[in-house]
Each structure stands twice: as C-alpha cells, then as structure tokens.
C-alpha cells in the first residue's frame, strides 16, 4: 500500500503521530490513552473505537481499554509487576 492506500484516512486535529509515504504526509494516527496503541481512522471502516470521558481522549476500542487506567498509570503498574505486559 502506497500513499493511495491512505485516501480514506481521516484528518485528525490532535494526532498522536504522522505517517509519511515517500516523504509526504498522507495520514495521522490517533493514540489510545489507555494502552498507548496507534491507529489510522478511516472513513467508513466500521471499526468502533472508544472515548474516555475521564481522560477526555480516544481509546482503541479494545475490551481491556474500557476501564479507565491511564497509560502512565498502566506503565507504573507494569513496572511494579502488578500487571503483565
């Protein structure tokens, strides 16, 4: 997939990252505030994401990211061995 593969990418006002193909920015990524994962929002994809009203940021939509555990807190829990990677 080259740049044309991102034609359906949605413009993000507050991106978590930028995708460049052959030096040209073609899309932005959003970042899940609970797991730190990135994804490209595509118009019409049908993929349901989430939004945390405590963090006021998007989530990836994964079940494990439904409870509000901010990513920073999650990292601290990993470092204390309270949760697995």
């Amino acid at each position: 997939m080259g740049a044309e593969g991102y034609r359906d990418a949605q413009f993000e006002r507050k991106p978590g990252g930028h995708i460049l193909v052959d030096g040209v920015e073609v899309a932005q990524t959003l970042q899940c505030c609970h797991c730190g994962g990135h994804w490209v929002s595509r118009r019409g994809s049908g993929i349901i994401r989430g939004f945390c009203v405590r963090c006021m940021k998007p989530t990836c939509g994964g079940i494990r990211c439904d409870p509000c555990i901010p990513f920073e807190k999650r990292l601290e829990m990993m470092e204390k061995g309270l949760i697995k990677l």
Partner: peptide, 10 residues
C-alpha cells in the same frame, strides 16, 4: 518508503 513520526507525547 514508509515513515511514522510520533507527535509529542505520542
């Protein structure tokens, strides 16, 4: 060539 660059904090 594909490149991904994180926004600050991302």
């Amino acid at each position: 060539t594909f490149r991904w660059v994180a926004a600050p904090g991302g």
